[in-house]
């Protein structure tokens, strides 16, 4: 009887292993097809990142909105995480009231364009009072005002094969969003904060605001946007400068 049991167990184990392996292969193909794989998916830690990213993409597929708050809940003290860039090009822009600042948008778009601050302010104005948390643990609530990135991208015409939207800053940083987050109604090109022009240390003249991800995804001091279908050839190919410092590309946690 015990022999029978072991043989049966061996067969079931074998079948389960085969089913598991082919199931994994099918899951990997499906995940790739439905864009459920983040750029930092390699290695042991990549498995955790892929599970988180895929789970969130499925969970938020109906474009769920980040929690919004009352004006009375806006934080009295807004923490500053790093001062504005000290480079000469930034100081020149600042001296001119950012009148010479331009945001260029290129890559897989029908009409590559360049926008001034005044151009961006001509788009429908939107506001959100949302929570911004740092990976470190601190957080604050503020009101952000700006143009929806989706409105701007509609004007330049994103091509259908596009998969990623890359952002570059005056202080030489870069990050990227997938199309669902780029077109999300709470993803802003924000030029105002708490009813004022964007303060210098918070990203003047224009910063990105991504409400459903941690603060480090909301890049300050934007200078260029590139729409692509691949992450290769940009930085180390991980979609952002963050993974090399231990912060994952996807920051929805």
């Amino acid at each position: 009887m015990s022999e029978l049991l072991t043989r049966r167990r061996l067969i079931t184990t074998g079948l389960a292993a085969a089913a598991g392996a082919s199931g994994l292969a099918v899951a990997a193909r499906l995940a790739d097809r439905y864009s459920l794989i983040p750029p930092d998916h390699r290695g042991l830690f990549g498995a955790g990142e892929t599970l988180t990213y895929a789970a969130h993409r499925i969970l938020t597929a109906h474009h769920s909105l980040a929690r919004e708050f009352e004006r009375s809940q806006i934080s009295k003290v807004i923490p500053v995480n790093g001062k504005h860039p000290e480079v000469e090009s930034y100081q020149r822009l600042q001296a001119g009231g950012f009148a010479d600042w331009r945001l260029t948008i290129d890559g897989l778009v029908a009409r590559p364009s360049s926008f001034s601050l005044a151009d961006l302010k001509r788009f429908p104005v939107h506001s959100q009072i949302t929570h911004q948390a740092c990976e470190e643990g601190w957080s604050f609530i503020a009101e952000w005002t700006g143009a929806r990135l989706s409105d701007v991208l509609n004007v330049v015409g994103v091509q259908p094969q596009a998969k990623w939207v890359f952002f570059f800053t005056i202080d030489q940083w870069w990050d990227s969003l997938d199309i669902p987050d780029a077109l999300h109604p709470q993803t802003f090109l924000a030029y105002g904060m708490n009813g004022q022009e964007m303060p210098l240390d918070h990203g003047a003249p224009v910063r990105l605001k991504v409400a459903r991800q941690l603060g480090y995804k909301s890049l300050k001091y934007l200078s260029r946007i590139t729409v692509t279908d691949t992450m290769k050839n940009i930085g180390d190919g991980l979609g952002s400068g963050s993974p090399s410092t231990g912060y994952s590309w996807y920051a929805g946690i």
Partner: peptide, 15 residues
């Protein structure tokens, strides 16, 4: 710590 594997390890082991 956080810029090492701390954060990646936390979410992998959570899964």
């Amino acid at each position: 710590p956080i810029r090492g594997p701390g954060r990646y390890l936390h979410f992998l082991s959570a899964w």
